[in-house]
Simulated scan of single mutants.
Amino acid sequence: MMKIVLFTHPSFTAHQSMPRYANMLLNGMKERGHEVAVWSPKARFYKLPILKSFKKWLGYLDQYFVFPLEVKLKLRNSSKDTLFVFADQALGPWVPLVKNRKHVVHCHDFLALKSALGMVPENPTSFTGKLYQIYIRRGFSKGKNFISISKKTRQDLHQLHLGEIANSKVCYNGLSRPFFSLPRESSRDLLETKFNILLSQGYIMHIGGNQYYKNRQGVLEIYETWRNLYHTNIPLVLIGEEPSEELNILHKKSPFKNDIHFITNLSDEHVNNAYSGAICLLFPSLDEGFGWPIIEAMASGCPVITTNKAPMNEVGGMAAFYIEKKPADPAQWQQWKEEGAKTIEKVLKLSRPQQTETIERSFTQSQKFTTEYFLDAVEVIYKEINQIV
């Protein structure tokens, strides 16, 4: 049995996927018989009655002033064989607290840091944002042992880490909740009734937030091009955050605006229905740390169209349909949109045997990313690090 301390983001931050990931580690290691304690900042300054615009800075006081003092006190009573696990490399400022103890840092994506360093021109970072990412980078660079969720993330880690790395492994994410291939027609009927939109003939689906790399604008552009080229009246459903102002403008200008639907606050259960009822998932991300929707869709029996770039093609393997990344040069955008449109049409024109083969291949690919497979691999690495003298 190992003694594990799991560092996680505080509950008062707006993270969505990170709490699921941390809970997967927590519950998975407990089920395997290990003793796990969670260390996370509590809301003290953050809960003071003050203007909302100052809340973030009060949260920083809780995370980077109060919490490190608490950790130092707790470390006095922690045995030397305790393994300290950081659920996210963004918790880097706390890594130096245990740099001389057994530790491991889970790495997800470095998109914010790369943006702050000017490596992503399409996503400029504010001055304070740059300082914050430098602070995080200096912190996780004190770490020696790392687990990355993809080969692409591992590559970025080695490029951005400022110190010496002793151990660096890849453990692909496991599904943090179960997804199944649900009956297609009933899934469509359920969503049609719930949202009062016509979905019985199927729909093209996207899921994700407004982050630049999710490329929601590109989803609309491909969809419009497909409608113009092939004149097929099938709606587009975008699940996730409320659309940004820019996306709203594009939506209002679209000749197909009545067939483009934004859905927010969809429950996990209904997300599974959405995948199962979709004709395909259109997921042309510019970048990802992993790309959860690819596997979620495949496990739900939904064909996937995504970007032919790591880590998307790492995750999709031979089961996905690929288009190239949207080029930076606007002169090449039309060609890119037409390529995406042709790929949608290719998926729609699959024969029944081809559809069955695609779904079977997708399901087989999704089984490489089960929770059990992920946790077993993580446990092996934890034990290796824990045995280091």
Rank of each mutant, 00 (worst) to 15 (best):
Y223F: 15
F256W: 13
N272C: 14
Q335N: 13
S276A: 15
K257I: 06
G291Q: 08
P303C: 09
I323G: 03
E314M: 00
A278K: 14
E339C: 03
D259H: 09
I249V: 14
Q217C: 00
V237H: 09
P235D: 10
E339P: 00
K252W: 07
P255F: 08
S244D: 12
W336Y: 06
E324N: 11
P311M: 06
L348Q: 14
H261L: 01
K349L: 15
G317S: 02
Q332V: 05
E296F: 04
V271F: 08
G240A: 11
I260Y: 01
K309S: 15
F262D: 07
L229I: 08
I239M: 05
L250P: 05
A297T: 14
K257G: 00
A331T: 10
T225D: 02
I260S: 05
V219R: 02
G289R: 06
K257Y: 12
L220T: 08
E241I: 08
K326L: 03
G316R: 02
P327H: 06
E288R: 07
E245K: 15
K346A: 11
Y230W: 10
L220Y: 03
N258H: 12
N233R: 15
E345M: 12
H251C: 00
L282Q: 07
Y230M: 12
K309P: 04
I305C: 03
L250M: 14
K309N: 10
E345A: 13
Y322H: 02
E245C: 05
E338V: 07
M318D: 12
N258P: 06
E221G: 01
Q217E: 13
I239L: 15
M298N: 07
S276V: 06
N313R: 07
P293A: 03
G218N: 00
L348I: 13
T225Q: 12
N248A: 00
I344C: 09
E224K: 13
K349T: 15
W292D: 01
I305G: 04
L266V: 08
D287V: 00
E345I: 00
I279N: 14
I305E: 02
S276T: 08
N233D: 15
K326R: 06
